[in-house]
Design a binder for these strands. Structure first.
Lengths: 345, 345
DNA sequence: ATTAGCACTCTCCCCAAGAGAGTGCTAACG
DNA sequence: CGTTAGCACTCTCTTGGGGAGAGTGCTAAT
């Protein structure tokens, strides 16, 4: 266990380095944080902390810099809660007030706000409806060739898609078809509706109903494509340019690689697949080589009480952890409100 | 008018500079392009070209670099047609083959491909349905509180949106309502359906029909919001990181500003609002200060013969103009094919 | 255990010198 | 008269040395 003074020193080093981005020496440390001892003592403490792996020295006659483990210890044991300022709260509260019904707009604004307040990169995933259940399938006849397929879920969402039908179908057939789909699929979590299950339903239909397989196949594959698309999930990114403000991203090639990564939606999506709660991934803790001097702080948000999506901030390991965590957790609430409020009316 | 030799020299300077990104001197010019005269002669020609404003000298003892007007002259008078390689064509042809019905996927891939082939930033706008006409409005009752609003356009597109209704409405009312909207709005180009027109219709409805204004207002505003959203248009961007490969973007602050700009969708949208055809905007010809050492080459694509959207490449003024233009024009065709093919089936 | 003092190390900045590249000018040439 | 060889000149970029500055670790004294 670290002595109280060592903890104090480590905390001071982190806070100083986060502010200045420059290796911090014993002198500046005693001057700016009243530690009550001399520089020599601090030097000894810092040497100890270095040996323990919490601090590093860029070169022998420079100050100290927190290592990944140093940040880790700081986050786990030393960090103090941060209070958002009033204006920050106001900014974030806008989210709940967006009038549009489009999730799109809300999420785009969220990622933007995140980057704006944190000065890092903001990331937000769309709410995943995986966990919600299908309640019914409807087919509505529109005109001679067009029908509308509707999926209802138990969290109040409705998705619709226009489908082109072959001319030989009767309105009654369509009702039967919809009823059958509902019968077979209702109550199932969206994520369990795989192509395998759909294939089964397809086979059954072929046996029981006397439709052209063409039509059935079309409907089944449209349903499938559509479920896939809505299950895919999107990632909204805002403020990518902010990383260029950080002194640790002066190396153009490094920045380029990171930016290229940020354009790969599937990778981001996988990256943001997280368990509920707040999580901090520091430097080497990240799997991807490009991100090994970045930190990702993530939180999840819920819709109607169920975990739905992730919001995150990506920045250098030298990050204002306390502040970012506060922002994320506050925004998590705002998003829940925005989405849950929307479903009610 | 420029002498044939001057044209030759200017062409050589542009081509050399585009390849090497370094000021080109008389020596390298005669060595790499067989101009048949000595360096001294070339020096004189270059001095003339500089005086005419087509070339510039970074400093007195450096080689020459094309000015914005130099590029302009090159593009307008000197450039030779570029042939795409087979593999480039294959890559672009993928676009037409995307099976998804989602415009989203096609456009995202398009911007990606554009950046991949050109090594600059690729931009694509979604097809604008402005010019198409509304044919009818339908309201379909779903369950006690939900209705589906449908808009049909004369190019075969259908847009649908779920609306929440107050309970007091009767199915017959809804049909009347839909019929009235159709009666008043059918045949109008989408872009003419402004909030002013909708307000008029709203007023008329209030007089003629005995519904709660609450409901009417709701429907009108939903319709409005929705038309706005589908008229808004989106911009797809790919390969933003590519600009970091360019030696002219070493200045981090400059890059940051440009990246920030690229995150502003409305600005991009305005930027890409272009008349049909291929267009090159070089350096200072751009309005925005951030872009004054960039070139935007844009082309438009049509859907069913009508101009629908823009695709563009953004890079440094030192750009491979001929190649980029070929790529854009080829892709324009691919996009038209992708979208027009889609509407048919 | 803490601290003052000191020698030592390493980076960063500045400056001067020299190499290199390219020019413009002048005078000679066909 | 257009073209070219030759040359002096200018400017940048690189290289290397020297000194200032910051910070350290160690030792001896408190």
């Amino acid at each position: 266990m670290l002595s109280e003074r060592k903890r104090e020193v480590l905390r001071a080093v982190v806070s100083e380095y986060v502010n200045t981005a420059e290796p911090v020496g014993s002198r500046t440390l005693v001057r700016r944080h009243d530690l009550g001892v001399s520089t020599a003592t601090i030097r000894n403490e810092m040497a100890d902390l270095e040996e323990m792996g919490y601090l590093e020295q860029p070169h022998v006659s420079a100050g100290r810099v927190p290592s990944d483990s140093g940040y880790r210890f700081y986050v786990d044991n030393l960090m103090e809660q941060d209070q958002l300022t009033g204006s920050e709260q106001d900014l974030l509260n806008q989210l709940a007030g967006i009038t549009t019904r489009e999730a799109d707009t809300v999420l785009a604004s969220a990622s933007r706000l995140l980057s704006q307040i944190s000065n890092y990169v903001g990331l937000v995933t769309s709410p995943r409806i995986h966990t919600s259940r299908l309640t019914s399938v409807k087919l509505v006849h529109l005109d001679h060739r067009l029908a509308l397929a509707l999926l209802f879920t138990d969290n109040g969402q409705v998705e619709s898609r226009v489908m082109v039908l072959p001319p030989e179908i009767e309105p009654a057939d369509m009702e039967n078809l919809a009823a059958y789909f509902t019968h077979r699929l209702a109550g199932k979590p969206i994520e369990e509706i795989t192509s395998q299950l759909l294939d089964e339903v397809y086979e059954e239909l072929l046996e029981n109903v006397r439709h052209s397989c063409d039509l059935l196949g079309q409907i089944a594959s449209a349903l499938m494509a559509w479920l896939k698309a809505s299950a895919r999930g999107r990632v909204y990114m805002g403020g990518a340019h902010n990383i260029l403000k950080q002194p640790e991203f002066q190396d153009l090639e490094k920045v380029r690689r990171l930016l290229a990564l940020l354009e790969e939606e599937p990778i981001l999506l996988q990256l943001l697949q997280r368990d509920p709660g707040t999580m901090v991934t520091i430097g080497r803790e990240n799997q991807l080589p490009v991100m090994q001097d970045c930190t990702v702080v993530s939180a999840t948000y819920a819709v109607n009480g169920r975990p739905a999506g992730t919001l995150a901030v990506l920045g250098p390991t030298r990050m204002n952890y306390a502040h970012v965590i506060s922002v994320l957790e506050y925004m998590s609430g705002c998003l829940e409100q925005a989405f849950s409020g929307k479903d009610k009316d």
